[in-house]
Write a protein that binds this DNA or RNA. Structure first.
Lengths: 187, 187
DNA sequence: CTGTTTTTTTAACAAATGTAAAATTTATTG
DNA sequence: CAATAAATTTTACATTTGTTAAAAAAACAG
């Protein structure tokens, strides 16, 4: 569970905080294509992605739009569902056979209420996700799709091979045809 | 300071938490056009917007892109700067004469370390901002500019009159000409 | 290895959007 | 209230992007 532990520690957990969290983790293994979180349902568990790749997406009448990819060490959850106990709007699909560690919200909130270090760990977790969400948003609005594609390739070179281009195109906010044109341009 | 207090209470602060926070608030008044937070600088204060309107934006070589509007009761801060003590990438401008209440990060973090209720208040603050950021992001990617404009008008009817269309257009991710066409279509 | 299915690229055309500049409307100031 | 400045809309044209469908390439199964 090294990826998961590294993630927990990166949020400022000391050995005590870590020791409290680890017993809560329940390992689960899912096949490629498994829908971990389904839109419209309440899902009060959070998952550390130990091994595999995931995408978060919304479905429309006809098509679905991917808006996030998760890799080893990332946390998978339905924000609204997990934090506010309301039905979530997004689904999360595992794009490869994956190993996750699950924590039910109830266990976590109990620790948060009792232990100030845990509460601050949870605060830093939310803050770090917030900064990432903000950066993604700004990036999206500020840079053309071609630049974002280039950065995507630079930052996650292996994902290009692990994820279908259709998903990447919808993540970048362009049609797959446009993404093909972008790729053709870089040669 | 009713807007600020309402905001603090909406994040689950009881009377004790409120009583600890209020003494930290320093009122400041700024004229229209004041740049509250400047990109590239570290700003370790957070501001509750008691009165006024604000926009967060990034500057490019030639133009600037607005990516957020704040109204009474919203919190103004440079995320990266405030939470990570690094230079922020965004600027925040006050679009009207405004009243804000300022809290230095150092005061807040001290409370967070000592008091589990405060830490959980801070956690909920970050979580609620995270949910909003996520919704904005999804909205942006999922819906065409015309729909987003309609929602903007519906949700903030008064802002249309308080904010220049150029800022709104860049917020929606389209040129001002396109926004004019959208507006013309709705008649 | 071969046939089949899936994914990606290309082509052709229509629709939408951006740019630059002019025209109009609205706001501001003396 | 007139004069000026600022903001918004409109016009004209070029460019980009989306759509649908076909072609090519890659992945997969027997």
């Amino acid at each position: 569970m090294e990826n998961t532990i590294r993630k927990i520690e990166s949020l400022g957990a000391g050995s005590e905080t870590l020791a409290r969290l680890i017993p809560l983790l329940q390992e689960e293994v899912f096949p490629k294509g498994h829908i971990l979180i389904r839109e419209g349902k309440v899902e009060r568990s959070l998952f550390f992605l130990e091994k595999g790749v995931a995408r978060a997406y919304l479905t429309n009448e006809d098509r679905d739009v991917t808006f996030w990819f998760g890799v080893e060490g990332d946390v998978l959850l339905s924000l609204k569902s997990y934090f506010s106990n309301e039905p979530g709007y997004e689904s999360i699909e595992l794009l490869e056979k994956s190993v996750v560690y699950k924590i039910p919200y109830s266990s976590l909130i109990e620790l948060y209420q009792r232990d100030v270090r845990m509460a601050n760990w949870g605060r830093r977790f939310a803050e770090s996700e917030l900064i990432k969400a903000d950066e993604r948003f700004i990036n999206q609005q500020f840079k053309p799709a071609a630049d974002r594609y280039e950065e995507f390739v630079r930052d996650f070179p292996d994902l290009i091979r692990r994820i279908q281009l259709g998903h990447i195109a919808s993540y970048l906010g362009v049609s797959q045809v446009t993404l093909s044109r972008i790729r053709a341009g870089k040669r």
